[in-house]
Nucleic acid binder design. Structure first.
Lengths: 240, 240
DNA sequence: AAGTGGTCTAGACCACGAG
DNA sequence: TCGTGGTCTAGACCACTTA
């Protein structure tokens, strides 16, 4: 099977929401009708709609129907999704984002990194510091650690391009879970030097661990930006 | 049916993870075995495990099995889940949290509130400012707007206790989706007065809209705390 | 009463990973 | 090849909402 039917159904419905076939606050066709139209069983339609509900596109009400949720007022263009597994390039566009590698070594991990990446002290990690620019302007200071054993042959060419693409398209690695923490901090020396922050300026930091679908942590990183350059947004829906 | 079978299965598995019956990084019994043991079909077991996977408790690998994911190293006790629909009391314990109502009026909504709560300019809203204390210490400054028509008979007694509990247990309202934005800001006059922040101190703000399961926005609010008092964490997994 | 989504089953077949 | 999880179906019944 090339693509799961429920994914195809979800994509079709999502497109119909986007192009206005299904309008905000109005009900979709009922599950049985969609199933008939698309030639699948009702359970398959339901599975697709469950996913769209978790993504916040629709809401369902037993006894009434499934409705398009509509736009989110406080969403702005420069907000970053704190959920989702897209790299900066994917998120903001390849043409806008460039990377400058400030530091790139292979180190033995300290205790903190060992714990976060669930590795032993003799398993080397990449230690990467990159300044990401948005339209040439300093934007995000990104400090990344990855186990060498999981990411062979990382080099400057990849770092100047997109790590994310290398992991996914070249190495075929699949992300499963990410745990992210968002905090505020004061600008340190590096922030002042590279992000052009002033002393005592406000910095927003995203700290994260990303796991592969086999349960192995693949990345521990922090991303720092000036407080007025970028916010983080989270869309939360029920797990079940 | 009192409780759905898949919820019961999820609860049982979750408890077994918590009490150590299923240990970190080890496989659970296969779906067929669990189904047999618990007297349900395999699909019901799968549905339960899908939910636990989205909550980040387990990960599944086709062809291998389902594994316990284990602890998250960067998680700390004073972090707040940016996902989940629990009130402060639920999250940190009834005994620790107290509330002081600083402002409580019924207003006509301005344009921003109208948009965020999807209401007209003649539909009144509660305008509530509360200082939440943690063990008597100023902790969070919470500014909340809610449509009056959705929340009848709100009063000081409820505000001093828990809005969350009133909405859920008394009014039987169900939350479906929340959209949250996290940003850094400088302390304003109120932060300085009530949170004991100094001028130019760092403030972390959570701005959110919460929808009911019928698609109607029920709450627009901001929660501000000093940068070193509280961070926000997000656990992200795939929607499908 | 009618129509919606929610749950559940038994059975089938597929895709993936290990030996 | 075997055992795992992933998908899909048809059919059944339940719970909820509106009329």
């Amino acid at each position: 099977m090339h693509e799961a039917k429920y994914l195809k159904v979800a994509r079709i419905v999502q497109n119909r929401i986007k192009d206005g076939t299904y309008k905000t606050q109005t009900p979709l066709p009922d599950q049985e009708a969609l199933a008939k139209e698309l030639g699948v069983s009702r359970l398959t339609v339901k599975k697709a709609l469950d996913g769209l509900e978790r993504k916040g596109l629709v809401y369902k009400q037993s006894g009434l129907g499934t409705f398009v949720l509509g736009d989110i007022p406080i969403k702005e263009s420069n907000d970053a999704a704190a959920n989702g597994f897209f790299g900066l390039q994917e998120e903001l566009g390849r043409d806008h984002i460039s990377s400058e590698v400030l530091h790139f070594t292979i180190d033995f991990p300290d205790e903190n990194i060992q714990k976060n990446l669930r590795i032993k002290n003799n398993e080397p990690v990449y230690n990467i510091l990159r300044l990401r620019r948005y339209d040439k302007k300093p934007f995000i200071l990104e400090h990344t650690y990855m186990p060498v054993k999981l990411v062979p042959n990382l080099d400057y060419v990849i770092l100047n391009d997109s790590i994310y693409e290398y992991l996914h398209k070249q190495l075929k690695l699949k992300f499963s879970v990410a745990y992210r923490k968002i905090k505020a901090a004061k600008a340190d020396q590096w922030d002042q030097e590279f992000l052009k922050a002033k002393k005592d300026d406000l910095i927003l930091e995203l700290e994260q661990i990303i796991w592969l679908s086999n349960g192995q942590p693949i990345e521990y990183s922090t991303s720092r930006n000036r407080f007025n350059e970028r916010n983080y947004v989270v869309l939360e829906t029920k797990s079940f």
